[in-house]
Computed example of a mutant assay.
Amino acid sequence: MKLFLLKFFTWWSGQTFGTQLWTWRFGELVGKDEMGNTYYRTKGGVIDPTLGFQRRWVVYNGYAEASKVPPSWHGWLHHTVDVAPTEESYVEKEWQKPHQPNLTGTPYAYRPAGSTLASGHRPKATGDYQPWTPGS
């Protein structure tokens, strides 16, 4: 029963019942990426008259986080390229990096030197800082 209710009321842990129904009725599977996300478009690639372009969407495998979409699929989802990576021989560019999850808010988040969260205390000023005092 819990899983059934979660499909109605939560979108962050997988597709909702509404998305599942929309995908079943109007969607056409385009492909799947290495992380298990599935990509859809309107059946037959029909152009939506209200939008003026084809609807495309992703159903995430697990927690819904946009950074889980690889660069190859990101271009297709955002209409930067017209051909999906499964419909062509996509070759990754040398500058493309592998996926890293968004670590903001976790103990593994990036904390640069000088951050109060990096080591628990801020390092002393290097002498180039002149504090403002009233009347000066």
Rank of each mutant, 00 (worst) to 15 (best):
S13L: 12
R56C: 08
I47V: 15
D48Q: 00
Y40M: 01
P101K: 00
A118L: 10
Q15E: 10
A113M: 02
Q15I: 04
T38F: 03
G120N: 05
G31D: 07
S119A: 07
L21Q: 07
H121S: 15
N102T: 01
W95H: 14
G45Y: 03
A113D: 09
G75F: 08
V69K: 03
Y108R: 08
G31T: 01
S89I: 08
P98F: 00
G27R: 08
Y40T: 03
V91W: 05
A113S: 12
S13Y: 10
W73E: 13
S72A: 15
W95P: 02
E88G: 10
R55P: 13
E88D: 14
S72D: 01
L51R: 15
H74Q: 11
Y108F: 14
P101M: 03
P98D: 08
L77D: 06
G31W: 06
L77M: 03
G114N: 03
G52P: 09
L29E: 12
Y110K: 01
W76N: 06
W76C: 08
Q54R: 10
F26V: 08
W22A: 07
V58E: 07
F26M: 14
L103P: 02
K68H: 13
G127N: 06
S89P: 10
L29T: 10
Y108G: 05
W12T: 13
Y129M: 08
R111F: 03
V58K: 06
T23K: 04
R111N: 02
Y129G: 11
G18T: 11
D128A: 09
H99C: 02
R56N: 07
W11I: 14
K32N: 00
R25D: 10
G18R: 11
T23F: 03
S13Q: 14
K93N: 09
G105F: 01
G75N: 13
S89A: 11
V69G: 02
K32W: 02
F8C: 12
G45K: 06
Y110T: 02
H99L: 08
